[in-house]
């Protein structure tokens, strides 16, 4: 059996699944308990698990992440919410300099099993300070795992895997996906980090996408097939760290072409790393230029007409892929 649920409902279900299973899982953040979350992703958790395990905090991101880290070091498995991923900047020391390095600096004496979940990315007209796609910030720090699901089922399964992982995981929920429904099987879902998924098979080019860019890539692939007879394979990366390069390299070896679709701004976006790996390890299989489709290197504007110009659109993906194929 399966049912259609929203990406938003999947968040609640994922947290509840893990809190029911393991009493050491605790959840903290701003407005997550009594208010049910500003995106209504955590409704009902306070009622089910009580105020000891589901805890509202002050607007103190360093205090939130620090509390999660210290608790994780001493036997708990905290889930910390940072309301918008833009606010990572206010607690980046804790995430990048403390959490990510604790295990290494102590030669393995300290382990930090926690999940930092956050609403990431654009599409909701929130402007430059509440719309950033920061997956590349997290990806470039040794010691952080980085996960970004595109569907409700993937969200639940990857979230469960993140909570059960012994390492710190930055879990990015693309906020424009919250109202989107997709099919979720019944029962407990547990997925595996570091596994990309071929979500549409094809022969002529591999399109690698993440989070909200996956449905756009799929729609673009459909148009490319219908209008131009181009068969595009679409891969949902799902997890930037660990990175499933095997699935990507196998696909590109077969299709001989690659395009990445990234929501993060151009410079040092995650696609650059994938393009570099493919360029080094798959060079002799290639028949065309490696193409990156990204948000341009600008802050995001607020106006819907301008935001739609900056985020990679289905049309831009179609045109860029067609151009890459000559």
């Amino acid at each position: 059996m399966a049912e259609l649920i929203t990406y938003r409902e999947a968040v609640t279900r994922a947290i509840a699944q893990e809190m029911r299973r393991d009493g050491s899982v605790v959840f903290l953040g701003e407005d997550i308990a009594a208010a049910g979350g500003v995106f209504k992703t955590t409704k009902g958790l306070l009622e089910e698990f009580g105020p000891t395990r589901v805890r509202d905090t002050p607007i103190s991101e360093e205090a939130i992440i620090g509390a999660a880290m210290g608790a994780a070091m001493t036997g708990m498995r905290p889930i910390a919410e940072i309301m918008f991923s833009d606010f990572f900047a206010t607690c980046w020391d804790l995430i990048a300099v403390e959490i990510a390095k604790a295990r290494y600096m102590t030669a393995g004496q300290v382990t930090v099993p926690l999940v930092i979940r956050t609403a990431n990315g654009g599409g909701l007209r929130f402007g430059a300070q509440h719309s950033q796609a920061v997956e590349n910030w997290a990806m470039m720090i040794p010691g952080l795992k980085v996960v970004a699901p595109s569907t409700a089922a993937d969200l639940i399964g990857l979230f469960a895997a993140s909570v059960r992982d012994e390492d710190p995981v930055v879990f990015l929920e693309q906020k424009s996906l919250y109202p989107v429904k997709s099919e979720v099987p019944d029962g407990e879902l547990v997925d595996e980090l570091g596994t990309a998924k071929v979500v549409r098979p094809g022969d002529d080019i591999t399109i690698v996408a993440l989070a909200a860019m996956v449905p756009r890539a799929l729609e673009a692939a459909e148009q490319l097939q219908q209008d131009r007879g181009i068969s595009a394979e679409v891969i949902d990366v799902r997890s930037l760290v660990p990175l499933d390069t095997r699935t990507i390299l196998d696909s590109v070896s077969r299709t001989t072409r690659l395009a990445t679709v990234e929501e993060n701004p151009r410079l040092c976006g995650w696609g650059a790393e994938i393009v570099s790996i493919v360029g080094e390890e798959c060079f002799w299989d290639l028949d065309g230029p490696l193409t990156r489709i990204t948000t341009p290197h600008v802050p995001l504007p607020s106006s819907d007409s301008l935001e739609d110009l900056t985020l990679p659109s289905v049309e831009r993906i179609v045109e860029s892929v067609a151009k890459a194929l000559g």
Binding site: V26, G66, A67, M69, G70, A71, T74, G75, L94
Partner: peptide, 17 residues
């Protein structure tokens, strides 16, 4: 200053456990 919030976490954990 970074370790003050982290120390809180260890104290919170002791309280929870």
């Amino acid at each position: 200053g970074a370790h003050l919030p982290i120390a809180n976490g260890a104290a919170w954990s002791a309280q929870l456990r």
